[in-house]
């Protein structure tokens, strides 16, 4: 049988291998995001000549975090819940040659790591953040998240969610990220292109991928993917997106001084 071309980036065999299959549930969207990230990086390694060992994947805690854990044939960090961005920032401070891909979830980014999220965007430090948004806490059993729609029932909102939700992409844009895009797991090619743009962007790139959790939303993966496709509307200039639809596309793609480069000017005064 022909092997999946991206298997080379996983610890599938060899002395450190034998770690597959991944822990994620069948039909989960996270694997699709990892696949998109591998395709994007594969192309960047080929086209930009960046060494593979310079890529580091950093995750926190939650389903999204399991994408690194111990599976990757890359350097990676499966770190602390919500703290991916300061840890990634620390790594970049130590070695600005690193190309850091942070994979996170809506709880990791929007709740426990919310403060780090807006400050990383404000600093515009050279990170690519892939945020897998499934609208709830999957790993802990389907609890409400800051991205859950109003009225929805989860294991901690048995009478329906009474809170407003965050639009993470808008938050990233407002906080100062220089590349922000949102796609869904029903848009794999667009996701790959967005990740490539994000990695190539000198600054904070935030790519939100709306994803399915068939287990906790109690629907089939196929129905959920179809719904994601049907309910998403491409951003077109200032044109309003109808209520209840998911705006997808690029929120911003601008140029601004990146923090490591700005700080380098401070260091260079003393050389």
């Amino acid at each position: 049988m022909k092997k999946h071309p991206m298997l080379k980036y996983l610890k599938e065999e060899g002395p450190m291998g034998d770690r597959l299959p991944m822990i994620l549930c069948p039909g989960c969207g996270s694997g699709q995001v990892l696949n998109a990230a591998f395709h994007a990086i594969d192309k960047i390694i080929e086209e930009d000549g960046i060494a593979k060992e310079n890529f580091v994947f950093i995750t926190g805690v939650g389903c999204s975090a399991r994408l690194t854990s111990h599976y990757l044939n890359f350097d990676s960090g499966w770190t602390i819940h919500g703290r991916t961005l300061p840890i990634a920032t620390g790594a970049l401070l130590a070695n600005p040659e690193l190309r850091i891909i942070v994979i996170t979830g809506d709880g990791d980014t929007g709740a426990i790591g919310g403060n780090h999220f807006i400050h990383a965007c404000r600093r515009n430090i050279d990170l690519t953040i892939l945020c897998i948004n499934n609208g709830l806490y999957g790993m802990t059993g389907g609890q409400v998240a800051p991205t859950t729609g109003i009225g929805l029932k989860t294991s901690t909102t048995p009478y329906g969610n009474t809170e407003e939700s965050f639009d993470l992409s808008k938050m990233a844009e407002t906080a100062g990220a220089t590349y922000v895009a949102r796609w869904t797991t029903a848009h794999p090619r667009q996701t790959v292109r967005a990740i490539m743009k994000g990695v190539r962007k000198k600054g904070t790139a935030f790519i939100e991928i709306m994803s399915q959790c068939p287990v906790h939303w109690k629907e089939t993966p196929v129905d959920m993917l179809k719904a994601l496709k049907k309910n998403s509307v491409r951003l077109k200039g200032d044109e309003a997106v109808p209520n209840g639809k998911i705006p997808i596309g690029e929120f911003c793609n601008i140029e601004k001084p990146e923090w490591i480069e700005s700080y380098q000017k401070v260091i260079d005064q003393f050389n």
Partner: peptide, 9 residues
Amino acid sequence: CILLGASWG
């Protein structure tokens, strides 16, 4: 967390 990332960096 900066220390954690920096140390592995």
